[in-house]
Design a protein around this nucleic acid. Structure first.
Lengths: 141, 141
DNA sequence: TAAACATGTTAGGTCTTACTAACATTTTGT
DNA sequence: ACAAAATGTTAGTAAGACCTAACATGTTTA
């Protein structure tokens, strides 16, 4: 199991990983915009993540993720993706609301909840009638 | 919609309400044990809740909940109960894990997530085959 | 290339939440 | 009733997360 990290730092490592995957790099300013925090806060978070061994970073240097950071990022992103799918395709929340809620819930769920939710989503994909009928009942209200 | 309150204070107001419902009263020491925090932390939290108008409380006085506090407590407890049910009877987590996860998720979900989850749980109660079959697939692994 | 602008860092605050240790008050037990 | 134990509060400290303002460095462009 990956070492513990605060919800706040999980948000940073998640955003860093996503930006690097999308654009090949991230700058502090991108994180500032993405996470709606000041450049100063980003600077502090990067320093902390770097001290904890999740990223490589130095004064004015480029940001890269370590293996430890990659594991952490994959773990958060897995939780996020799964929750987002569940919220959007089973509870039928709209895109934005699914995303917002996933961003918060992803930091607090246990491993077994993740495991069972994963199986639930799989089972639902194989047997989609239930959630589709549920969707219909939502409309007629 | 009830005014915003931090996750921490929500835990306190929830515990206060539960204890009063169970025993007719609460003392700081009960909250300290229930929430696994120091007596000092409870003291501070009670002061804050009282300043915010959620409880009536003064030095060495008895603790009672205001109408505002009752609304807040009902709101958290509703979320908790619903999540607990979902986690225990649809995702099939055991009692303790359902409870622990509900305690954390209850603080971060949106109103629409609550609303749809409520409907989902209702729908599931009327059509329980899906979750029962899902339960079987969990066993055979 | 040098000024203007964008971006990054640091310094110094604030707020919330928690802690321990010390002190105050209340309750219990003899 | 009074000492001992339990409970409640206050003071002082710390960590996390955020902020603004000032300063440092990099980049763009006239």
């Amino acid at each position: 199991m990956t070492k513990k990290i605060t919800a706040g730092l999980e948000d940073y490592i998640e955003a860093i990983s996503n930006k690097i995957n999308q654009y090949g790099k991230v700058r502090p300013i991108d994180l500032s915009k993405e996470l709606n925090v000041s450049r100063a806060s980003v600077s502090e978070a990067l320093k902390r993540l770097s001290e904890l061994g999740y990223i490589n970073y130095g004064r004015y240097g480029i940001i890269s993720i370590t293996d430890l950071g990659k594991k952490a990022a994959e773990s958060v992103i897995e939780r996020h993706t799964l929750l987002h799918y569940f919220l959007q395709n089973i509870l039928w929340l709209d895109e934005n609301e699914a995303s917002d809620n996933a961003c918060k819930i992803e930091h607090v769920i246990s491993y077994n909840l993740l495991k069972n939710l994963k199986k639930f989503v799989e089972y639902n994909k194989k047997n989609p009638e239930f959630s589709l009928k549920f969707k219909d009942t939502l409309k007629n209200q």
